[in-house]
Design a protein around this nucleic acid. Structure first.
Lengths: 149, 149
DNA sequence: TTGCATTTAATGTAATTACATTTAATTTTG
DNA sequence: CAAAATTAAATGTAATTACATTAAATGCAA
């Protein structure tokens, strides 16, 4: 993305102002690449995110509400995201036994297999960050965490 | 955003894996706040971004293509973004004298006044980052730049 | 227990975004 | 110069997102 250099050139009023734009820009930059990476699998970032959350449950089902709480990108449309995943047979939706208002969502073996396949590609892709030292990465994580407080 | 703590708890395979999620998450986090901040002005982030790019021109007009090149979030719909800004009388669109295919876009005094008003609110909001030292901010900017290479 | 408030998910809708196509103008090339 | 290729912007459309509303189930209070 050539705009990166643009960001560097721009003269910002302060390091703070630059940091704000930089965080947004870099987030978009990574998101864009992830989207490209997922395109062949007919998965949007949001759908992928939900699948990974479900995998994290290790077989336990999750209600839609619980999924929303863990999503990177808050949205009220988890219902429709799950719809898409059900359509594609990657997850199962069934009535929650304890609470008939709620719906249990469960990742299927096909969904897990898909994720494993994508893991491979992710690992390949992540090599583009080989120039970041372990210290760099730790520091970056600390600073981002600190930014959010 | 309570999910922040969630991010901290999650056990990632590596600092690298965490950094990737962290950059996306923090970008979304800042974006979300910016959107909230802009809501009263009936401006989307994209529209705001275009307005600021135009302000950066100091009165000089810009073609739609030139705007696209500077946008934080690449999209082919700069035309329609400009539409919205024209509707709201914040910018002017006119045929480019050198090239009749192109369209010159120019920010109007009303647009500049709006931005100034928003600058105020941005400054207020930015106070929430007072806990970041100058060194922190510089380091964060350097690491984000380095991440993108 | 009945009625009311709350919770959970789904749905309706309008706006936005992504992606492809179209239109018009310009540039290139034979 | 005419035809073909390229460029700039607009438009069509399908999918996604944002936001509000609805429907159903549950919990709570009188």
């Amino acid at each position: 993305m050539e705009i990166a250099s643009e960001l560097q050139q721009s003269n910002f009023a302060s390091e703070e102002a630059k940091a704000i734009v930089n965080v947004i820009f870099t987030g978009n930059w990574v998101t864009y690449q992830q989207q490209e990476l997922l395109k062949p699998y007919d998965l949007t970032m949001q759908q992928y995110n939900v699948l990974r959350i479900l995998r994290g449950q290790n077989g336990k089902p999750m209600t839609v509400l619980a999924i929303i709480e863990r999503m990177l990108d808050r949205t009220s449309n988890a219902s429709r995201l799950v719809d898409k995943l059900v359509e594609k047979k990657w997850v199962l939706r069934r009535e929650c036994p304890n609470d008939r208002r709620a719906v249990d969502v469960l990742i299927l073996p096909e969904g897990l297999a898909l994720l494993e396949q994508i893991d491979e590609i992710q690992n390949q892709w992540a090599k583009r960050f080989a120039h970041m030292s372990q210290k760099d990465l730790t520091q970056l994580n600390e600073l981002l965490d600190k930014l959010r407080n």
